[in-house]
């Protein structure tokens, strides 16, 4: 059974279709990239997948997440899916974290929630042990200090690691990362991409990686879907789509990315 099966999804705001007739399947453990520029509907699609569309938007078609129909489903059906079936990592780690809550407590929340769901004890010592485990998992240094820090007291890269730890703590089958490195420095981006790749492999999660940046996407996924103004223009393995793009739009994107890439010269080892 596919983990996520989006079938002919259309999302409308009033009379305007923001996503049109879009289909996408993610198998368990697969790593899929969703490429698009601003207004392509890539983030909307991800939100729709967990039933979190902004007010006033209307979804049609079908989204099966872990076997459950999401389109038109009531909150009670959707809530247990979030976290367990799919967890999010967002672009801006500063706004994704509560500014007034220490990191330790923040990471403990999804852990406590998951433990309740699994019928495990909510003993403080056990939760704290798990918090430490997940912060170690995302390779954060000096965990005692970080657990006692507020988000503004740590670096942007560290915040994104915390956000990843929180997503990981839900033990999701699918990790949805929406432009997770766009706000980060290049060297930090490289580290986070490396971390994401490793974690997804080791935890056996599937990954839906949303980005406008072609080389970044190429680093972490096997398959890509290219969106333009809410419509899929091309779908396939990364090497095929980037190596011999068929659609005019994909060609233009690949050429533009390649132009900047060429300007950098041969990769230095």
């Amino acid at each position: 059974m596919s983990l996520l099966k989006i079938d002919k999804l259309t999302i409308r705001a009033g009379g305007q279709a923001l996503v049109k007739d879009m289909s996408l399947t993610i198998e368990p453990g697969a790593r899929v990239g969703l490429i698009g520029e601003s207004g392509s509907g890539k983030s909307l699609t991800a939100f729709a997948a967990v039933g979190l569309l902004p007010q006033g938007l209307e979804a049609k078609g079908s989204i099966l997440l872990d076997g459950v129909e999401v389109v038109g489903a009531p909150e009670e059906t959707l809530r247990p899916l979030r976290g367990s079936a799919a967890a999010f990592v967002f672009q801006e780690p500063l706004t994704a974290l509560d500014p007034l809550m220490k990191i330790g407590r923040q990471v403990a929340e999804p852990i406590a929630r998951r433990r309740r769901r699994e019928g495990k004890s909510a003993k403080r010592s056990e939760i704290v042990a798990e918090v430490r485990h997940y912060l170690e998992r995302v390779a954060l240094p000096d965990i005692d200090r970080i657990m006692n820090s507020y988000p503004f007291q740590i670096s942007g890269g560290q915040r994104q690691r915390v956000a990843i730890a929180m997503a990981l703590a839900c033990r999701p089958k699918l990790l949805i990362a929406d432009e997770p490195t766009t706000a980060l420095d290049v060297t930090t981006q490289a580290e986070i991409l490396e971390l994401l790749s490793t974690l997804v492999r080791e935890e056996g999660m599937a990954l839906l990686f949303i980005s406008h940046d072609l080389p970044v996407v190429a680093k972490v996924v096997e398959e890509v879907t290219v969106l333009r103004r809410g419509e899929i223009v091309e779908q396939g393995p990364v090497r095929t789509v980037f190596g011999s793009p068929q659609h005019e739009y994909t060609k233009m994107l690949v050429n533009a990315a390649a132009a900047f890439d060429r300007a950098l010269g041969e990769p230095v080892q």
Binding site: V186, T187, Q189, A190, L193, D213, L214, P215, V216, A218, K219, V238, R239, F242, G243, V254, A257, A258, D261, L264, P267, V268
Partner: peptide, 12 residues
């Protein structure tokens, strides 16, 4: 500079 260059994601 080397680290910076190595961090730039490249097209496959």
């Amino acid at each position: 500079t080397r680290k910076l260059l190595a961090s730039v994601p490249r097209m496959p």
